[in-house]
Design a protein around this nucleic acid. Structure first.
Length: 120
RNA sequence: GAAGUGAGAUGAGAUAGCCGCUGCCCCGAUGUCAUGUCGGGGUGGAGGAAAGUCCGGACUCCACAGGGCAGGGAGGUCGCUAACAGCGACCGGGAGCAAUCUCAGGGAUAAGGACCACAGAAAACAAACCGCCCCGAUGUUACAUCGGGGUAAGGGUGAAACGGCGGGGUAAAAGCCCACCAGCUCCGAUGGUGACAUCGGAGGCUAGGCAACCCCCUCCCGGAGCAAGACCAAAUAGGAAGGCAUUUAAGGAUGGCCCGUCCGCGCCUUCGGGUUGGUUGCUUGAGGUGCUGAGCAAUCAGCAUCCCAGAUGAAUGGCUAUCUCCCCGGUGCUAUAUCGGGGGAAACAGAAUCCGGCUUACAAUCUCACUUCAGCG
RNA sequence: GCCCCCGUAGCUCAGAUGGAUAGAGCAGCAGAUUCCUAAUCUGUUGGCCGGACGUUCGAAUCGUCUCGGGGGCG
């Protein structure tokens, strides 16, 4: 498994897992995004997305999802080990490019201290 | 050359590099009863509208898709098609100088009902308000008033007032009569598959609009939808099938109702659901491309050749560079050009069972055909 | 995939059996009242009825096509 890959095992696929992360996970919000974090027992970082139809048409939603996935793929070291990550997009999000997405998520994630007090 | 009409085509702007996702094939490693997992390589990977879901089919299940009512749909003709509310050609009405565009284009005389506000005398088996005319009575000179009658030519109202115009006719009038015109109905001839067109004859003079109100006529439509449906695994008890006996009946089996068909309460035997997850359905098809032939065309036939997305918390992407395009500024200028800088997910938009249409959205560029006007030869 | 509802004044709604000036409440504006404000009372402004085309003498109303918004089922 390469460092920058994004295989099926690294995705949240079950409906149960999604509801668990949303209900029980730690919640961090930025202007346009809400990020849920929850420790799992798999030893893998997993990623999931929530983009509703209120965000826009299919083309716009697809682009947002691709940009968010790209961020997770390239910046896995930002997230703690063995964690489920779920990102929900708020209404009105309209990123111009990848760099805008990267800056927004990093500013939120590096500011929160989820999982860091657990690590030695 | 200008103006216009119609029909199309292309359309993540292009190339390269790096990092990813996904279907199929091959190789290697590893593991299993088996499907797998990981790594590497090869090869495919959004659209003309994939959209809206407005129609029509294929396919699947419900009974093999049955009968009647209700309900819905299509309305010029002929053709094309798997089918259609689509397409083609033609006919008829309307618009335009023309190319061409446009029409829900059956029936109001095959039957019937409803409605037609306001205005107006009257709005639908017609009708007398004003006016015109005749007769009678009274005042009594013409004339006026009252009563009885005739009259749809004139006035005014209205979207619409029961043919037009001229002549005859009359007390005044009127298709009351006549000629011409328009329209209607019927008959015949010719041409056309037909809608219909042209011509001839006869009739009776007139028959308002509205069917995108009900209705009538002709034709068509059973219902649901790939989350259809089939299979496997796990976990769990309110099920299913067959046989026997009983019974005619609430209810169920997917259409709104009725009929019809099947099931039905109990006992015995056998098999195993809802739900969740996975596999399948799933992409080779009314398929694409090319050529030839038939047809005015839509389209069809034959031959050759190609395989061209199959995701499923849902792939088809991100970044960088260069070029192109667009914007701004300088030089220069009718302009082209050249130099520098900056910006752009550069239009509309993302497959979800698959096809045929329709409709809507759309940056930029290109092609073809035709019409009118102008100029030159 | 299938289905339904709603667009009328700045806002919330009537009007929907076609008939001519499209109403009501709140808000706005002006005036009265008050020392001033609120409340109250009186008057008044504001609409091509989401858009286009059609049927009709006449359309917010009927028909078709569209655009936008909202919701439901599996």
């Amino acid at each position: 498994m390469g460092q920058y890959s994004f295989s099926r095992a690294e995705r949240i696929l079950r409906s149960k897992d999604f509801t668990l992360v949303r209900k029980e996970g730690e919640r961090v919000a930025s202007k346009n995004l809400v990020i849920f974090l929850k420790t799992n027992k798999l030893g893998i970082k997993r990623f999931g997305l929530g983009v509703s139809t209120k965000i826009g048409e299919a083309v716009k939603r697809n682009r947002i999802k691709r940009l968010l996935r790209e961020f997770f793929r390239l910046n896995k070291e930002v997230f703690p080990l063995s964690t489920d990550v779920f990102i929900s997009v708020k209404q009105g999000f309209n990123p111009a490019g990848y760099k805008e997405v990267e800056a927004e998520i990093k500013s939120v994630i590096l500011g929160c201290n989820f999982g860091r007090e657990v690590k030695p």
